[in-house]
Amino acid sequence: MSEITLYSEEIQWSDKPMTWQEAIAFSAGPLLDAGKVEPSYIEAMIQNIHDLGPYILIAPHVALPHARPEAGVNEAGVSVAVLQQGAAFPEAGHTGDNEAQIFICLAAVDSESHLHLLRTISTWIEDSQVIEKLRRAGSADEVRTILFDVQKQKGDDEK
């Protein structure tokens, strides 16, 4: 499994404070630069949160920005951005978990690629220790190493 390719340039880290909108656009940057998504896709991801609330928070401190393929996806992809300072979302949930430091931007073209990407992302975040490691990362290189180690380890477990 996990034959999804997360290219090094699709992993980013920043120490700049950002609003949640800026964080979503930042996380999608590599997909936009590579022509995998259109600017309209980023607008759709942000609009969905205005409409539906911060439902993209999939784990403590982890957000999964995404929209429908027809909003402007040319090629399936995923990009990861880790922020040193959490970006706060509107409408805190009951638990008060309304900030995210890890943004995993998801662009799918069909349900098969979508499921495959989701399964891979699940392996990254199912372990809260990995989330903690990512939050403490101090550079894109560190983020890269953490994610590649998880994928390698999961790959070994499957053998």
Partner: peptide, 25 residues
């Protein structure tokens, strides 16, 4: 579901449980 939708969906016939980490078995 997440905690936000859990409060919206509570009160029906189904039992509603809020999950924080969607990938946590």
């Amino acid at each position: 579901t997440n905690s936000e939708f859990a409060s919206q969906l509570a009160g029906g016939s189904a039992v509603v449980k809020a999950i924080k980490n969607m990938a946590s078995e």
